[in-house]
């Protein structure tokens, strides 16, 4: 396979808090290739959003990237200065956020926010930038883009705002787009439209997508590969169909079981007992052990990564798939 566009290696992100240093992301590694979609799945607090922010170098104090490398086309972003990062952000690597109601500045017109994004990276005239902004809006399916350019964000619906945000993120055809739950706050119908549009636009421009979500059904329809995060670690990784059909990690299995449509009518919905552990009081060894039906004494030790064939990996002593497959 060719060299990945984005390669995250043993990323550790720490936050200093009153309780001490909290490790929000603990040794996360993943690769994304051009045109590929990686689904990053996990519950709230699993560190998936922090991972996304870290990739753009947007971790603010009291947080910091403690160790690891983030390679964008082979260049390590963690070693770059703020000015160098600024030049890469938006141009080579872009991000869209969860709540479209709050990602656009309420007091600036849409054209201002789009033109500044273009002119932050390219020396073009106001006029040319404006034309490009209009075309970008048309491309994400916004009707009468010329008129919409002079609108303010509050004059758009949630779905339209997210389209504007996506248009802005894709203005420079970035190599990587990190999407942090961009459809979670939207209606299901709008969600489906946005998903298919992003997929299409990313494929057109060869943009690699890192799609952060807690929704397995989104991942099932969109992603090529999936990485499941729990308490700051990737606990399972592999091709989407493979992982969803034959989950190795009990946590992944629990997540799949929790999707309502998989449950039988009339029976109580399946759920994973307990809650995501607080980062301040992670159990030693496997962080999922206290909630895990298969846990035993071995799980008091930190599980290593087991590789099981075709890009499949997991961190578990008691996987649900036969270990013989691991070769």
């Amino acid at each position: 396979m060719s060299q990945p566009v984005l390669s995250v290696r043993d990323l550790v992100v720490e936050f200093s808090a009153r309780e001490g240093v909290l490790t929000a992301v603990n040794g996360v590694s993943f690769d994304v290739h051009a045109g590929e979609v990686l689904g990053l799945v996990g519950e709230s607090g699993s560190g998936k959003s922090v991972t996304g922010l870290a990739v753009l170098g947007l971790i603010d104090a009291p947080g910091r990237i403690a160790s690891g490398a983030i390679l964008l086309n082979g260049e390590d972003l963690t070693k770059k200065s703020e000015a160098e990062l600024r030049r890469l952000r938006g141009r080579n690597i872009a991000m869209i956020f969860q709540d479209p109601m709050t990602t656009l500045n309420p007091v600036l017109r849409v054209d201002t926010q789009m033109i500044e994004a273009i002119r932050a990276h390219e020396k073009v005239s106001e006029r040319a930038a404006r034309d490009r902004a209009r075309d970008a809006l048309a491309k994400v399916g916004i009707p009468s883009p010329e008129e919409r350019l002079v609108s303010y964000p509050h004059q758009f619906s949630g779905g339209m705002r997210q389209r504007v945000a996506i248009a802005i993120a894709l203005l420079h055809r970035p190599a990587v787009l990190v999407a942090d739950e961009p459809t979670t706050a939207l209606d299901v119908t709008i969600q489906a439209q946005i998903l298919s549009e992003v997929q299409q636009l990313a494929a057109e421009s060869g943009t690699a997508l890192v799609w952060i979500t807690h929704d397995l059904s989104v991942v099932a329809g969109l992603a090529d590969r999936v990485a499941v995060m729990y308490a700051g670690r990737i606990v399972e990784e592999g091709h989407v169909a493979d992982v969803l059909e034959r989950p190795a990690h009990p946590y992944t299995n629990g997540l799949i079981g929790s999707v309502p449509s998989r449950n039988k009518r009339g029976e109580p919905l399946a759920q994973i007992p307990g809650m995501t552990p607080s980062l301040a009081s992670l159990p030693p060894g496997c962080a999922f052990a206290p909630r895990c039906p298969r846990a035993d004494a071995v799980c008091k030790n930190p599980p290593g990564v087991t590789h099981a064939g075709d890009a499949r990996a997991f961190r578990c002593f008691h996987p649900l798939i036969p270990v013989e497959a691991a070769a």
Binding site: L58, M95, D99, T102, T103, P106, V107, Q113, E116, A120
Partner: peptide, 28 residues
């Protein structure tokens, strides 16, 4: 606010983020 994070994710300079995005909101 998210829109400040988004503005930074667009690659805007610090002076533009503060001088336009922040300032215009706090002036109200």
């Amino acid at each position: 606010q998210d829109y400040i994070r988004f503005a930074r994710a667009k690659g805007l300079s610090q002076s533009r983020v503060i001088g336009v995005h922040v300032l215009k909101n706090i002036l109200i």
